[in-house]
Write a protein that binds this DNA or RNA. Structure first.
Length: 305
DNA sequence: CTATAAACCTGCTGGC
DNA sequence: TGCCAGCAGGTTTATA
């Protein structure tokens, strides 16, 4: 669920609340949540470090610390960062009742930054500046940056036989889109999820570029999309769900043409679209399924850990 | 290069 | 009402 907008929204909140503070202590309740280095070293290195800045790259949260170290946080499916006020009883900062709290950072002003994650997929890593770029080296274009232009997108798609939907989800191509925003982007651009990347026309590429940008910006503006568990720093749900056009709306009428929206499986993930506004290119030869699902390709690669 | 499947985990849903 | 198979989505890894 946390995709670029959800991560960006929390990054902005963290930037306004914890920059300038120092870490007093760290408690790791689920060692495997620490991807690098080992949990013991992680806990030993952090106390005393001051938080210099907070950034985002793709779906990663980057917390720059004094001592040339950077905290990399990836929320994966169900991870959330919550900030709690200083406890009245300073001694009890660690005994957070929530059983899903995997890592707890105690700030020097008594507040607690907690990483909660029911599914245990989320990861936190600590890298020295010298290894940071290597750790993030596998990521593709940052969709809200200046490098993401229609031309850059065109170059990415050129010669690719892959279906467009899996390509959009591939973090080594474009970094930050997840299932929700990929579906929303394709709908906005009027492109069927099974279209082969290389077959998109210049006009379609331009539309897709604009759609990706718009959909992500709107997501951020609305505090992200909450379906299962995304919450912001204060535990608040995002409001973007009310602004989605196709995701999780199978069977409901298309907002543009009224036709029933469809859900199929593409690359082992659900894909939602409007069969009218997003016509299937080469549906001809195929057996012509209906609404259920149909296997199709995918792939994706990315960062280590 | 592209596609497929399984794994990592656990809460929630649907069906019986 | 209760139990369980199956689903969900981000990423990695192994295999066609």
């Amino acid at each position: 669920m946390p995709e670029l907008p959800e991560v960006e929204y929390v990054a902005r909140q963290l930037r306004q609340t914890i920059v300038g503070r120092a870490l007093s202590a760290v408690q790791v309740n689920w060692p495997r949540a620490i991807a690098h280095p080992d949990a013991a070293t992680f806990c030993a290195e952090l106390p005393g470090a001051r938080i210099l800045r907070v950034d985002r790259r793709a779906k990663f949260l980057l917390v720059s610390l004094s001592g040339d170290q950077t905290l990399l946080i990836h929320r994966r499916m169900t991870g959330n960062l919550l900030l709690f006020p200083a406890a009245a009883d300073q001694r009890s900062w660690a005994d957070v009742p929530d059983p899903y709290d995997r890592v707890v950072f105690l700030l020097d002003d008594g507040r607690r930054l907690v990483f909660t994650d029911p599914r245990k997929f989320g990861r936190i890593a600590l890298y020295p500046l010298s290894e940071l770029s290597a750790a993030l080296s596998g990521l593709g274009l940052e969709p809200l940056s200046d490098e993401f232009t229609p031309a850059a997108l065109a170059a990415l798609l050129a010669g690719r036989a892959r279906q467009i939907k899996p390509l959009l989800l591939d973090q080594t191509c474009i970094a930050g889109l997840g299932n929700i925003y990929a579906d929303e982007s394709l709908f906005r651009a009027g492109i069927h999820p099974l279209r082969r990347a290389a077959t998109l026309t210049p006009a379609e590429i331009t539309r897709l570029h604009a759609a990706i940008h718009a959909v992500l910006e709107l997501g951020i503006e609305h505090g992200g999309t909450t379906f299962g568990r995304h919450q912001d720093l204060w535990g608040q749900a995002g409001r973007n769900r009310d602004h989605l056009a196709v995701y999780q709306r199978a069977g409901e009428p298309c907002l543009r043409c009224g036709a029933p929206l469809v859900r199929i499986i593409v690359a082992q993930r659900s894909a939602h679209f409007c069969p009218t506004c997003q016509p299937n290119p080469d549906a001809a030869a195929a057996p012509a399924p209906r609404s259920a699902s149909q296997p199709e390709g995918d792939s994706s690669q990315s960062i280590r850990w």
